[in-house]
Structures are given as structure tokens and as C-alpha cells.
């Protein structure tokens, strides 16, 4: 039994070493297959020669060597010899072959399992790299925003606050701006209002220009009356004529003025030349302050 176990181990080792050769043989041609079979036998002979040095297995080893070297002949011999020992040796050979096949299958499965795991790792690495690529852009953008808010954004905010305050003042001044929303709309309202005010100013200034010549006429009338009063002052001989003119203008005045005229007539009859001069000056001043300037002027000219 010990010998059989050792033999099995040897066969397993040999077949493990030979497994890739079998794979190659399957893929190649007939001649190459034959050559490799010969190389297989040669390798086995070399390995077995190493065991000849062991003194314990001397006689048995010789028999096993003969069996291995004559494998092809064994297929023919059992018909002739019919030996029990040879049959046992064949059974021993068959069993280790089956075990080796199972081990090979396990190896293949292990390899298959390893490959997808490696591919999965590659997938993970790809995802990590892509995520890393995205992160710095995002962070970079945010950093810029932070810097902008820290420095430039404050100045911009101050400007906007000033502008908003002034816009509110304009809203208060302009009647229709409170309802409008948005800067553009407010500016439109302001522009329209300014234009309308400018038009009104022009229109009203035209009205003034139309009325101005009348003012000039009034000023001319005043200056003419003053001149006439100065002219009528010194001549004493015409005092009667001046009194007559005043008398004619009196009936148009109110009652108060009539009473004053009565008083003047009494004084003139009673007193001398001084009274005449004082009464004449008073009458002239009344004429000047009266609103009926045109009538007095016309009467004066008609008398002359």
C-alpha cells in the first residue's frame, strides 16, 4: 500500500508538470503531436532515472521501469499473458489520472474568477479617476466665486445700493414710476416724463412771447403821461383849461371824487394864486393814479 501511494504522488507531480504540453498538443498537427508524445516519454524516463539511485526500491523499480517503457506493448500483452499483477498496475494508473483532471478544472475556474475581479478593479479605477476629474473643476469654480464675493462683489453691492436709492428718489419725483417694475421700464418712464416737461416749458414760453408786446405798450403809456404832466406844470395861463379837463373827467368817477371837486372849487374862488397851483397838482396826481388814462389824454389833446 505504501508503494502504491508513493507511485500515485509521483504520477500526480508528473502530470501537473505536463498539463500545458497536453494543451499545446491538442492545438497542433499530427506530426507535432507524435513528436511531443516522444518528448513526454523522454521526460518520464529522465525523472525515473533519478529514482534508480534509491537502494530501497531497486528490484521493484526495475519492474516499474519496464512497465512504463512498454506501455504500448502492455495494450497487446494482456491477451497473451493474463497476469493479475499487471491488471492491478493498470487500475492504479487510471485512478490518478481522474484526480489530476479535477484539479485542472479547479485551476481553470479559479483563473476565470480572478479575471472578472481584475476587470472590476479596472472599472473602479476608471470611476475614481472620472470623479477626481470632476471635483477640481467644481471646487475651482466655487473658489473663484468666494474670492469674488470677498473683494469685488462688495464694491458692486455698494454701487447697486447707491443706484437703487437714486432710482427710488426718481420714482418719488416722477408720477408714474411706482407701478413699473424693472430698470428698463423705469428709465423709459423717466425719459418720457422729462421730454413732456421740456415740451410744456417750450409751449408756455411761446405764450409769454405772444403776451410780451402788450407789456411794452403799457410801459410806453406810463412814460408818455409823465411827460405830459411835466409839460402842463409851469404854464399859469392855462390853469383854467386844466381845471376844465379835470371837471369833465369827474362825472365818470365815484361820489367821493365829486365831493373833492366841490371842495376844490370853493377854495379856488376864496383863495389866491397859491391855492390854484396846489389844486392843479393834486388833480394831476389823481389823473395819473386813475385807470382811465386814455380818456384823459384824449380830452387834453381835444382841448388844445
Amino acid at each position: 500500500m505504501d508503494l502504491s501511494v508513493l507511485d500515485r504522488l509521483k504520477w500526480l507531480q508528473q502530470q501537473q508538470m505536463v498539463s500545458p504540453e497536453f494543451l499545446q498538443i491538442l492545438g497542433s498537427d499530427g506530426r507535432e503531436e507524435l513528436k511531443r508524445v516522444e518528448s513526454y516519454l523522454g521526460n518520464n524516463n529522465d525523472e525515473l532515472q533519478s529514482f534508480r539511485h534509491f537502494p530501497e526500491f531497486g528490484p521493484d523499480y526495475d519492474t516499474t521501469d519496464g512497465c512504463i517503457s512498454r506501455t504500448s506493448s502492455f495494450h497487446m500483452e494482456p491477451v497473451k499473458n493474463n497476469g493479475h499483477s499487471r491488471a492491478i498496475t493498470l487500475q492504479n494508473k487510471r485512478k490518478p489520472e481522474g484526480k489530476t483532471e479535477k484539479r485542472e478544472k479547479k485551476k481553470i475556474k479559479a483563473e476565470d474568477e480572478t479575471e472578472p475581479s481584475m476587470k472590476g478593479k479596472s472599472n473602479m479605477s476608471n470611476t475614481e479617476t472620472s470623479s477626481e476629474i470632476q471635483k477640481p473643476d467644481y471646487i475651482h469654480v466655487r473658489a473663484r466665486r468666494g474670492e469674488a464675493t470677498d473683494r469685488h462683489s462688495l464694491a458692486e453691492r455698494a454701487r447697486r445700493e447707491k443706484i437703487s436709492k437714486k432710482m427710488k428718489c426718481l420714482q418719488d419725483i416722477v408720477p408714474g414710476c411706482n407701478k413699473v417694475t424693472g430698470k428698463a421700464g423705469m428709465l423709459d418712464e423717466i425719459i418720457n416724463y422729462v421730454q413732456s416737461l421740456q415740451q410744456q416749458v417750450e409751449f408756455l414760453s411761446m405764450k409769454l412771447s405772444v403776451i410780451n408786446p402788450e407789456l411794452e405798450c403799457h410801459i410806453d403809456d406810463l412814460s408818455a403821461k409823465q411827460f405830459q404832466a411835466y409839460f402842463t406844470g409851469p404854464p399859469e395861463g392855462d390853469s383854467k383849461q386844466s381845471i376844465m379837463a379835470d371837471f369833465r373827467s369827474f362825472p365818470l368817477h365815484q361820489q367821493g371824487s365829486l365831493d373833492y371837486s366841490v371842495i376844490n372849487s370853493d377854495h379856488t374862488t376864496s383863495l389866491g394864486a397859491k391855492d390854484h397851483t396846489s389844486s392843479s397838482w393834486e388833480t394831476h396826481s389823481q389823473c395819473l393814479y386813475n385807470s382811465l388814462r386814455t380818456d384823459s389824454v384824449s380830452n387834453f389833446f381835444s382841448l388844445k
Partner: peptide, 24 residues
């Protein structure tokens, strides 16, 4: 600029309003 422009517009509007009142 924008700020000074708005100030000038406010002053100009007030002056125009005064002119209109006086002329009326």
C-alpha cells in the same frame, strides 16, 4: 456716470417743474 446722471436727472426734473409753475 450712472450715479451722477441720476442726480442730474432729479435736479433737472425739479427745475423744469418750477419753470412750468412760474410760466403758468
Amino acid at each position: 456716470g450712472v450715479d451722477a446722471l441720476f442726480e442730474e436727472t432729479a435736479g433737472y426734473i425739479l427745475s423744469l417743474q418750477c419753470q412750468i409753475k412760474t410760466i403758468k
